[in-house]
Simulated scan of single mutants.
Amino acid sequence: MLGFAIQRLIQAALVVLVMSALVFAGVFAIGNPIDLLISPEATQDIRAATIAKYGFDLPLWQQYLHFLGRALHGDFGQSFVYNMPVGQLILSRLPATLELTLAAVLGATLLGVPLGMYAGYRPNSPAAKLLMAASIIGFSVPTFWVGLVLIFAFAVQLGWLPAGGRGATASLFGVEWSFLTLDGLQHMLLPAINLALFKFALMIRLARSGTREVMLTDTVKFARAAGLSERTILLRHVLRLIAIPIVTVFGLEFGSTLAFAVVTETIFSWPGLGKLIIDSITSLDRPVMVAYLMLVALFFIGINLVVDLSYAALDPRLRKGRA
């Protein structure tokens, strides 16, 4: 298991290095932030001094090496717009996006997998058919429309929940979190539901198809012949056999939701990373754009690493390289 983990860590480090080069080159090939940093009426001397100050006069490969050296020490530069360290800026917005993503993906998984297993176990029951119809709706409706409907129904018409913002927060380990206060939970509920709907539908369909397939295997037949109860069969055998695809989807959906919750954060005025990256793209705030994309890449690489290690824990054959 240790050798398997070391091999995956080396692969992850190489991927991070390649992604850093691609992200840096891609972002620094788009636009010229100098046009936004200084006035159009500025003299050529002021323009040249500003370019030299930010190192834009150096060749791209030298700029990348300087960036890489600073990044290895946790320094991603200074934001052009916010005039503060990029790492500090991103860390101030990350908890809001992180707790919203965790609430959405965990809620969708914990609710969707049992319901999907039931739909696969009783595929012809009315409840199973209703669940499948609900999953189709979850796949079909766009996120922005669902968000607007939720705001109109629960905030405008019923007045039960707030329409936007993060609400009151409480500090834990020096970080402000919304889920620690009642007001924060009320503000988080609608955007979390909006983010979770597609994931909920996906988990239902994934668990249903896996359960239907496993219920026809010899494993289940032998378990029934051994006199095991249906509940034991579902929890001990079926759930374990469908766990690998569920772990895969959970990891990918968590990463994608964390990285691309822009629409939901915009609709509900949630002060997370989504709003930050939109503002940074508009203002060509290169350091923030590079740091955000690197963060996204690190999240996906880290999640894939955790998924690989989870595979090895679930299936011993992977640790020995036979599958």
Rank of each mutant, 00 (worst) to 15 (best):
V15S: 14
A104R: 00
S125Y: 00
L17Q: 13
Q88W: 03
G69Y: 07
I34N: 10
L14G: 13
L89D: 01
D35F: 13
V113T: 02
G87F: 01
N32D: 14
D57V: 02
V16W: 11
A12M: 14
A52D: 10
T50K: 14
A104Q: 07
P114G: 05
F24I: 11
W61R: 08
Q78D: 12
P59R: 03
W61I: 09
G74Q: 09
T97Y: 06
V18P: 13
Y54M: 05
L72V: 04
Q63N: 03
R47Y: 12
Q63M: 03
N124W: 13
V27K: 08
P40A: 04
P40S: 08
F80H: 04
N32F: 13
V113A: 05
D45N: 15
F24V: 14
A119L: 11
Y118A: 09
G112T: 00
V113M: 01
S20R: 04
L98M: 01
E41D: 11
F56H: 01
L98I: 05
G74R: 05
F80E: 06
Y64I: 01
T50A: 15
A21S: 12
F24K: 05
T50D: 14
A119N: 07
S79H: 03
F76E: 05
D45P: 07
A103P: 03
Q44E: 15
A13T: 12
H73F: 08
L60T: 13
S20G: 06
G107T: 03
G74F: 06
F28T: 15
P85Q: 03
L65W: 12
Y64A: 00
A48F: 10
S125K: 06
T43H: 09
G69P: 08
L110A: 03
Y118W: 09
F24S: 12
I30K: 12
G77I: 00
G112R: 03
P123H: 08
H73V: 11
E99C: 02
L100F: 09
N32Q: 13
G26A: 13
L115S: 03
Y54P: 02
F56R: 07
L14W: 14
L94S: 05
F80P: 01
A29Q: 10
Y64C: 04
P123A: 06
M117W: 08
A119R: 08
I46Q: 15
N32T: 01
V18W: 13
Y121M: 12
V105K: 01
P123G: 04
L58C: 10
Y64K: 04
